[in-house]
Amino acid sequence: MEVRIGVQNVARELVFESAQTAEQVRAAVAEALSSGSPLQLQDEKGRLLVVPVASLGYVDVGAPERGKVGFGLS
């Protein structure tokens, strides 16, 4: 599923595909906000994204990615 994170004072947002469910992402955001610890999420390739909760602008959790249709996609 696609996750978009807005960081304060940064023009570009962080956009990545995550294997986590929407509920898991929501729980991670809620935990980071309540404890004041950095938000830590993992993308589909296993990379860890860490965002300081004080700099967090927004988190947008998209729908799970569906199969792509078209020619030449691998």
Rank of each mutant, 00 (worst) to 15 (best):
G46E: 14
P64R: 13
V59M: 00
F71K: 04
E2W: 03
A32R: 11
G57Q: 14
P38F: 01
L56F: 08
S35I: 10
Y58N: 02
S34M: 12
D60K: 12
V7T: 12
T21S: 15
S35A: 12
S55V: 00
V51D: 04
R66D: 14
E17K: 10
S37H: 08
E31N: 09
A54T: 09
M1N: 08
S74D: 06
G57C: 05
N9E: 15
R4D: 13
G62Q: 07
V3K: 05
A54L: 05
A22H: 09
G6F: 01
V3R: 08
A32L: 08
S37F: 03
Q24W: 09
V53K: 05
R4T: 15
E13S: 15
S55T: 01
V3Q: 06
R47F: 05
E17V: 14
V7R: 13
F16M: 12
Q20T: 01
E65T: 13
A28M: 08
G36S: 13
V59C: 02
Y58V: 00
Q20D: 07
L39G: 06
G70F: 05
G70R: 07
V7P: 03
F16I: 09
L56T: 07
V51C: 03
A22K: 12
V3A: 07
L48V: 13
S34E: 15
Q8M: 12
G57V: 02
G67W: 04
R26F: 08
G36I: 12
V50N: 06
N9I: 10
V25C: 09
E44G: 07
L14H: 05
M1A: 13
S18D: 02
P64N: 13
S55K: 00
Q42H: 03
R4M: 14
N9K: 15
E44K: 14
A27S: 13
E31D: 10
E2S: 00
G57F: 07
S37A: 14
L33T: 07
R4W: 12
P64W: 08
L41R: 01
L39T: 06
V50T: 15
A28N: 07
V61K: 01
Q8P: 02
G6M: 00
T21N: 10
F71E: 02
L39P: 03
V51G: 02
E65R: 13
A32N: 10
S35H: 09
A54K: 09
Q42M: 09
L73S: 01
P38L: 03
V59F: 00
V51R: 01
V25S: 10
